[in-house]
Amino acid sequence: MDDLLVIEDLVVAYSGPAGEVRAVDGVSLRLPRGASLGLVGESGCGKTTLALALVRLLPSCASILSGRILLEGEDLVQMPETAMEGVRWRRVALIPQAAMNSLNPVYTVGWQIREAIATHERVASREADRRAAAALELVGLDPARRFAYPHELSVGMRQRVVIAMAFACRPPLIVADEPGSGLDAISRAQVLGLMQRLRHRLGTSFVMISHDLEEATALGDLVAVMYAGKVVEVCPAGRFPGQARHPYSRALAAAHPPLRGPRQQLTGIPGEVPRPGSPPPGCRFHPRCPEAAAACRQVGPELSKVAPGHHVACHLWGGEGL
């Protein structure tokens, strides 16, 4: 099977004054070449940590404790830092959270795109410049904008610049962390539409991270739901959220208003995400779960298959327990 990205039992922990905090706790995911994955969950469930771990750019207080990250069959966890520098952007690009604010204020936009290209490929400066212009055209910006400094562009334009930059080296995989947040509704729709078009045109795989269901499913062939550092459900995008099984997934869906379709009552999720330092025993969602049973308080459920390509970690649906 041609898998682009395989994550196996990944554990990422922050070491703080109160000891070790596992922000990502035994996550396994599989992404076939060309497919895209939407990763949803509330704030603080470990999505961003997972994204940073994928490119090995965790803050100094965090580290990967165990597990493997196989990109095209190569384990990134064991890779030396210099080799990792060659992987970043060329084989997996990260569009970080608040990307529109992550351009360097003292260099022109073109300079920063050229830098990305020149870091990975030996190109003449004229060629790099031509490609920077082409990258801007790709995202619907005037190529002349490459002479502009970031502060001279609007928020939405800056976001598109970072997307252009991400495509500049044509990586097979792009990890986008909340690419729509911080944008107004129109720019957000533009950015999402742009990413959809580019994905189809260039065949790039995406890992799309968002707390917003619509955004996470916008590109998705697959959807994964994270809660308190664990993946609780993985399913084909077409089955989400309609046929989602995990009580947390359904609660997430119930908390989001659908844009089309009949009006319905919105329900929030009672309680809050457990603090990563002290997750509850058993299923981590049980304190907030309306359907929690006795077993949920003691044994943590494993992912199990409920339909082709659809896995759920819940005692209500699994073979064990109950």
């Binding site: 490119v55 060659g86 970043r88 990307a99 992550s102 204020p105 003292v106 970072v162």
Partner: peptide
């Protein structure tokens, strides 16, 4: 601590160059 340092690292720019060309320049 600025975001552009993270983006520069994510671009695969070597740590030393991030330090001198991106961080120090600012």
């Amino acid at each position: 601590g600025e975001d552009f340092v993270l983006l520069a690292r994510a671009k695969g720019v070597p740590a030393r160059r991030v330090m001198y060309r991106h961080a120090m320049r600012n």
